[in-house]
Design a protein around this nucleic acid. Structure first.
Length: 267
DNA sequence: ATCCAGGGGGATT
DNA sequence: AATCCCCATGGA
């Protein structure tokens, strides 16, 4: 199945650090989300999809986002505009909220290869096997199923293990959807009530799975590049950075953040 | 506010 | 082979 796309780049979108369950395969990628396994490849403005529907992929990759409106909204900042031209087609994704939450709780004080290992191991230990193209993949376990602490710990989640365990009994898909519908600050507050979820992880979940494009996750990489670009390398608190981002980038601060993140990453 | 434990992985010695 | 460093959160 094919989808015509515009202003979209699959590689930038999958590899920019927001999403963990993809593997290069052939001239495309195998992508896993909750219970789905699909294969995606891009040639020019044609996206080829196997194993999923057009509607599902449009939703996952936010193909209906109005890039021009986003560019317009961020046009007050030449750095961001330049980065949007440098990485054309880099989109935020709309991940599964539960899988995104668990992934980012595991991400605390970790790095991308380690997080990928955690998620893969959790899926293998708790998920259901599914065949795709003769290969066995594993679904991501639903809320309520991550209850055995020892098994979770064996997935090398370390001190995050009790967080995963408790979150597993504190939320479900419907609760996350409801949180996502709250105004941004209230949603942050609610997510931060979960153990192991601080401001950064709350912002990641809101941005990458719950359509809160105003969220601006601040990790060390973003902190560093923000200081360098906007604070003359001076030490500034996260709340100052957040305040600056809010007034400079506004409703699409999260998009700005993702461009800054890749930019800061490759040097 | 400031400090530091925590687990695992990578780099350095 | 031992040691150092990184890192988001939570608790002291």
């Amino acid at each position: 199945m094919r989808i015509q796309v515009r202003n979209f780049n699959l590689r930038y979108t999958l590899e920019c650090g927001q999403f963990f369950r993809y593997t290069p395969h052939g001239d495309g990628y195998i992508v896993q989300v909750r219970d789905s396994v699909l294969w995606l490849a891009q040639h020019k403005d044609a996206l080829t999809v196997k194993g999923s529907s057009r509607a599902y992929v449009r939703r996952l990759l936010r193909l209906d986002d109005d890039i021009h409106a986003i560019e317009q909204a961020l046009s007050g900042d030449m750095t961001i505009i330049r980065l949007m031209r440098q990485y054309p087609g880099l989109r935020l994704m709309r991940q599964d909220p539960w899988e995104c939450l668990v992934s980012y709780v595991c991400s605390a004080a970790a790095n991308i290869p380690k997080i990928r290992g955690n998620i893969q191991a959790l899926a293998q230990a708790f998920g259901k096997p599914i065949k795709y193209n003769g290969e066995t993949h594993y679904t991501f376990p639903p809320p309520g199923s991550l209850s055995c602490a020892e098994t979770i710990r064996a997935c090398k989640t370390g001190y995050r293990t009790p967080y995963v365990c408790r979150i597993n009994e504190m939320v479900n898909d419907a609760a996350l959807r409801r949180i996502g519908k709250l105004p941004y600050e209230q949603a942050v507050e609610r997510l931060m009530q979960l153990p192991g979820v601080g401001r950064k992880i709350a912002d990641c979940v809101l941005l990458f799975s719950l359509d809160h494009d105003e969220a601006f996750p601040i990790d060390t990489r973003i902190r560093g590049i923000m200081r360098k670009l906007y604070f003359r390398n001076k030490t500034v608190s996260d709340s100052r950075i957040r305040q600056f981002a809010e007034q400079r980038f506004g409703a699409y601060a999260g998009y700005a953040q993702q461009y800054l993140y890749v930019y800061a990453g490759q040097r």
